[in-house]
């Protein structure tokens, strides 16, 4: 199982439901990846960054992860699922 974590942008003006997107990704990848919120000192296989729009620049460098997968629109959810599945 991949050890994955998630970071949301702050959500000032999201173009889609970021919480729903996260649930979709989690559910779709339940067989290959486990998700939790980031903890200090923990290494993750993948960091899923869920941005509400394309204007958010943060990559959360303080989180130790081999891969960073970004969703910044509803259209990007399926691609993120495919990318994480390929890592498994």
């Amino acid at each position: 199982m991949l050890r994955c974590t998630v970071k949301f942008c702050g959500g000032c003006n999201p173009r889609y439901d970021r919480g729903e997107a996260y649930q979709t990704v989690r559910t779709s990848l339940a067989d290959v990846a486990g998700f939790s919120y980031p903890e200090d000192g923990v290494h993750y296989d993948a960091l899923l960054i869920i941005r509400g729009c394309t204007g958010c620049p943060y990559l959360y460098e303080e989180i130790d992860a081999d891969h960073r997968i970004i969703i910044d629109s509803a259209d990007g959810i399926e691609e993120a699922i495919r990318t994480i599945r390929q890592l498994a």
Binding site: V6, K7, F8, C9, G10, G11, C12, R18, G19, Y37, Y58
Partner: peptide, 8 residues
């Protein structure tokens, strides 16, 4: 809420 903590 993790969805908003980055701003909050």
């Amino acid at each position: 809420d993790p969805q908003y903590e980055d701003l909050m």
